[in-house]
Write a protein that binds this DNA or RNA. Structure first.
Lengths: 337, 337
DNA sequence: TTCCATTTCTAAAACGTTTTCGTAACCTGA
DNA sequence: TCAGGTTACGAAAACGTTTTAGAAATGGAA
């Protein structure tokens, strides 16, 4: 077994053909005799030829790499894992590889994106946690670099995106709680900077106003803080003069934190208060109490993001590459009392 | 603003020096006048030069990429996320990038590794979920490709690894339960193929035998199955003639599944049965009941894996790059009754 | 002044690929 | 037989980098 990796030259020498012909044969060029093509491909397989990516990259300028910017703050359970899983699923069977870049907590969100752009590390980017006026999107649009976002922006130039219908989630979740007779419903909002903060708030407000009920918007507390803080908040709230009788929450774990807090405050789940969560894992299937939820399939989101981006790379228009997923209802309670 | 990316040639023309000199100046070569070095570096900064990786790769054969094989089955909560986070943390400030490859469920574990090797996609690999006779490790050793494993093997050729002391985890967990008067303790084992299955079993067995207690090893059920199955198992077991009074479990979520099952079977947590989990997230900090656990810091594991691998790439011996992390105890119960 | 040693720089090749352009060879019809 | 057109292949350049081997310039000693 020879130690050196076979190259086009190896095949050229074995077949007596030129480098140019070999290259074309492997790309199924039309100006070659079928026999020549087959000969080359046979020899290529025989010697175990695989293209040298550095060579390809240098010559073509294409790196066949998709970059994913991994955001650190996890309001959503298993976000990163499922996203990456989905992306890699969509990328297998293609020539593309996935590279992951960290977006550290204190760090400028711009930095990883600029790094990829400046070093032309990837043919396309996937970014998440979008803001209405996302500077990363602006930069990428400006430089004309293919990308897709998870989440929408409010920028005028259209760009590919995949999003979850967070308006629909909170709208239906609120209506569900209202139907169960709840009237003092708290929405645990995500960080205000993100676009979907507005969506979630919108769905909640609409449902509440339609029902003629007052919204409950805690002002003095950051509801997007760590779960332990949520726990404390729910405990205090349960003991207040107007205890919430419903919670809507964007993650299972945070929902459990609220639940434990409410219990510690003396509230009884099911009787005094109900919870609705966004479900991104199977956790709610096997714990008690049974908590009603709306599902978001992050793995599928990752898959879609990647394949939409590939279509973008193939030249499709941004407007045709915009998808919004609907929440799926997981009822786990008997009907309204 | 010029559209083309500056190259060494750009700098060479601006300074009037040759390509060779510019290249050496940027690498701090010793055979250059300090003034020349500074001149080149100043101009490089001014024009915003960044090296073209394809060019570097082609010339040097080094890709400056670390590959991480992402295993799909997650017995451990947030495994992938924290691992990747840690790796990327260790890699920032270096020239190295991380690419993630999927290891699909039914798929031959060999495939992604072989893919990386055949296409020389990375300078080094990080693989997890090691088996005692891991074929991937054999291949990589054979081909002399730098790598590191999360978990040990039983192969004779030494290789770099980072591992969690799973023996110590189950040993101490079992002793903890024994000290609380528990005598019928079930260990929820991971899949048998993995090396750490043996470690966990060993620690458990040793503690049990030292105490003169019979081990409880359920034979007819796959304890590494999905959490929903664990839930059903715990329910059945609670109703049996010899209900377990202690569970040791390698993940928080699975532990919650057991807990819900035991409750459904009529067992009361704290009175009839106790749980000890391996803790890799903050979940246990804010739910009830309070569950005692042993921590495994996966993010730090990722960081260590990456930096050990970098040291390997720098030429250090495998024997010097082997680390075993100790469990950290999180007691959440009052002392033994 | 001459010669050698040292310092400082450069020319050129090489890594593997794709693509443009050119040129043989062949065929067709008169 | 020959002009004109088509088919099938090859030569060479280019992408950006690093490195080897050598050349020019400088300095010091004789």
């Amino acid at each position: 077994m020879s130690k050196v990796k076979p190259t086009l030259k190896t095949i050229a020498e074995k077949t007596g053909l030129s480098l140019a012909t070999v290259s074309k044969a492997l790309h199924n060029a039309s100006d070659l005799r079928p026999e020549t093509r087959q000969l080359v491909q046979r020899v290529a397989k025989q010697v175990g030829y695989t293209p040298n990516w550095a060579g390809v990259h240098l010559r073509t300028g294409r790196s066949f790499v998709i970059a994913f910017v991994l955001n650190q703050d996890d309001e959503i359970d298993q976000f990163a894992r499922n996203m990456i899983l989905g992306i890699t699923m969509a990328l297998r069977e293609t020539r593309y590889l996935l590279t992951v870049l960290p977006q550290s907590l204190g760090q400028d969100p711009m930095e990883p994106v600029a790094y990829v752009v400046d070093n032309s590390l990837a043919d396309g980017l996937i970014i998440t946690h979008t803001e209405p006026q996302d500077p990363r999107v602006k930069l990428l649009n400006e430089r004309d670099i293919p990308f897709i976002t998870h989440g929408r922006t409010e920028l005028s130039t259209p760009h590919p995106f995949h999003d979850y219908d967070n308006f629909d989630f909170t709208y239906r979740a609120t209506k569900y709680l209202l139907a169960r007779g709840r009237r003092n419903i708290v929405l645990i909002t995500p960080p205000r900077v993100y676009t979907y903060y507005g969506h979630q708030l919108g769905g909640y407000m609409r449902a509440v106003y339609e029902a003629g009920v007052e919204p409950n918007l805690p002002r003095d507390v950051d509801l997007s803080a760590e779960p332990a803080r949520l726990n404390a908040f729910a405990r205090r709230a349960a003991r207040s003069s107007t205890p919430p009788d419903g919670y809507i929450c964007g993650s299972e774990n945070r929902c459990l934190a609220l639940l434990a807090g409410a219990r510690a405050g003396g509230a009884d789940e099911g009787r005094d208060v109900d919870f609705v969560a966004k479900q991104t894992t199977s956790l709610l299937d096997y714990i008690d109490p049974q908590i009603t939820s709306f599902g978001e399939d992050l793995k599928r989101a990752g898959e879609q993001l990647a394949s939409l981006l590939l279509r973008r790379l193939a030249g499709e228009k941004a407007d045709d590459l915009q998808v919004i997923d609907k929440p799926t209802f997981h009822g786990r309670k008997p009907g309204p009392t």
